[in-house]
Nucleic acid binder design. Structure first.
Lengths: 345, 345
DNA sequence: GTTAGCACTCGCCGCCCTTGAGTGCTAACA
DNA sequence: TGTTAGCACTCAAGGGCGGCGAGTGCTAAC
């Protein structure tokens, strides 16, 4: 994708910016008179019209019909996000709001994640999503197996960062609770310090030689655990916010958006894909998902102990308040990183 | 509430039933001609009109405006549910659908619950909700404490039915992993067979005398565990289905419904309240919640080992296909009970 | 290069009229 | 006495029409 900046002189940029700003707020096509008044450039509507005509030709603006104003194209939003946005700072009240609502006394990761999603959605009034910390990249500190019934046990994995996750797994019916405990201690000892993803290849051979007859069972259990742990969960909040925006007043459109969000598949994919980019913005059809054709998704990563361990983001109409969203996300990302840092130290 | 049956003769009943049946399907006011044709009673529209006029006076029908047909009142739905409904049987395909989609190979309670909610919502096309098995009434078989970091541990509680639940709790920083394990074994031994709700009163004194200096800590941990475990979770699926019904084509109405559902508060309350009634139906304003004024909620309980252990249900417009919903719920309740029975035996 | 002026476009809104589904009343009929 | 045909009446919904006004593009003048 080429850099579009060079195509536009400063005046065109300022006019385009004014249009995008206005459209983001009002959701209705912007006319030359409005731009002339709003942007303090001292230009008459006629001049603006000429420029707008050029911008339309260049593909930055679209005209719903001849006698309406213009609305920004996706290309315009892209340029806006890349080069034109006032990278808004949060107001004091907003920063305060976050501080008050992210309760640092909470001592469970899941709870912190839920709170963060809540705050994110409340502040932006869009749909928020937070990917809970990912396991694949974290080192195991402890694996406990707890017998539940004949044939099943609960596996609890604790990582060095303190993030935990649990899953039910099948175990051979022949194992006694004592056996289970023994195996539990063994694999903790062996896996300590490794990533779970490495477990199967690196550690299994060693275990195999030590446990003898139960080797196959242990092997299967470990694979079962790894499979369960590599499933990522995503916390989605405020899906119904979309109904506040006129572009979704059509029930069918709202329906397809909400169904997609409820399934969580696409959102999870986006979050996972973006897990190594500090901040990413997908606008409209940049989402390769027809149901999200009129949406934008903005994501940031968050850290603990210096490593990226998760991603969070916001979904809303392409006409999204990118400046505010990005400011909130930046702030929340560092808040969450702080909290997790302390929580997991 | 008095029984309304006596108020209506058989003909009025049949007419009312025809109207409710029709309105449930079409969502538009039903006129006398339609009733005359649909119900094979051999009565002319004029006669039907006289009866409908009576039914209106008695409060079973309402008229949106003079020249529209009639729509059933809440009172009519109540009568319909109590006395008039064809208590529909599932078709073979439907029963089959359930069998195919409730995967009995799954071995985790949470997963079964999610599947059930999914099937329930898919089959009815309303919003479904399933309360995960409640702890308060179950007996503890094992409590494991797993050290996570200085000051926190994960508590996993396994009940005699095999239902499990876990929570992060605070522990004194001074406790070593070995201490934690010792305490874990101690409280398992002491609590085995008791309900968690009884734990604090009955068992604490005993423990107190045994652990000496750590008594207070153990005491607090147990309270922490009990508090966490008594929180009930509800799985909600298909909230966006509501957008398929014309009565929710208004964005503001849809919004308030979806917000209420997303919060889950009210649904959880209804499910918990209904946890000792085999099947309950709340119609419209019988829900003491303004946002649910135009909804009906139908719930059933499900069992494991002969005891009620949870509740599930459906939320939809008051114009709900009660017959089908109740049939599906009945069938699903017994399927789920079966599966859990096997799973938790 | 900028701007005032002007004719033109076209969606929106309110108005009116027609249509048709449905009602309630009355009178006749079995 | 219950049932029914007939009829006048009501009223929401939908189509057609005209005015309004926001906005455009072009032209000519500064």
């Amino acid at each position: 994708m080429s850099d579009n900046t060079s195509l536009l002189d400063i005046r065109k940029m300022r006019i385009l910016q004014a249009i995008v700003d206005d459209y983001i707020m009002t959701a209705s096509p912007v006319g030359s008179r409005t731009v002339s008044k709003r942007s303090d450039m001292g230009l008459s509507p006629a001049t603006i019209r000429n420029e707008m005509s050029d911008l339309t030709e260049l593909g930055f603006l679209e005209q719903p019909h001849t006698s309406a104003g213009r609305i920004p194209s996706e290309k315009a939003y892209r340029l806006y996000v890349n080069h034109m946005m006032d990278s808004a700072k949060l107001t004091d009240e907003e920063a305060d709001y976050i501080k008050r609502h992210l309760d640092t006394r909470v001592h469970e990761v899941g709870e912190v994640i839920r709170q963060t999603a809540r705050v994110l959605s409340d502040m932006t009034n869009y749909t928020s999503m937070v990917l809970v910390p990912q396991f694949s990249s974290l080192k195991v500190k402890r694996i406990s197996l707890i017998p539940v019934s004949d044939g099943t046990a609960m596996a609890v994995v604790v990582t060095d960062t303190g993030v935990t996750k649990n899953a039910m797994i099948r175990i051979p019916e022949s194992l006694s609770p004592d056996d289970v405990e023994k195996i539990s201690k063994l694999i903790t000892r062996k896996l300590d310090g490794y990533r779970l993803s490495e477990a199967v290849e690196k550690v299994l051979p060693q275990i195999r030689s030590e446990v003898g007859e139960q080797a196959d069972a242990v092997c299967e259990m470990l694979e079962d655990i790894e499979r369960s742990m590599s499933e990522t969960d995503v916390e989605v909040v405020g899906a119904s916010n979309i109904l506040d925006y006129p572009e979704y007043s059509d029930a069918a459109k709202a329906r397809s958006f909400l169904t997609e969000v409820e399934s969580g598949n696409y959102l999870q994919k986006v979050l996972t894909d973006a897990s190594d980019v500090e901040m990413s913005v997908r606008i409209g059809t940049e989402n390769d998902n027809p149901d999200m054709r009129d949406c934008s998704v903005v994501t940031v990563t968050y850290k603990a102990g210096g490593k990226n361990i998760g991603t969070m983001g916001v979904v809303g109409p392409t006409r999204m308040d990118y400046g505010k969203v990005m400011a909130v996300l930046k702030y929340l990302s560092s808040s969450l990183s702080d909290i997790l840092g302390k929580l997991l130290k």
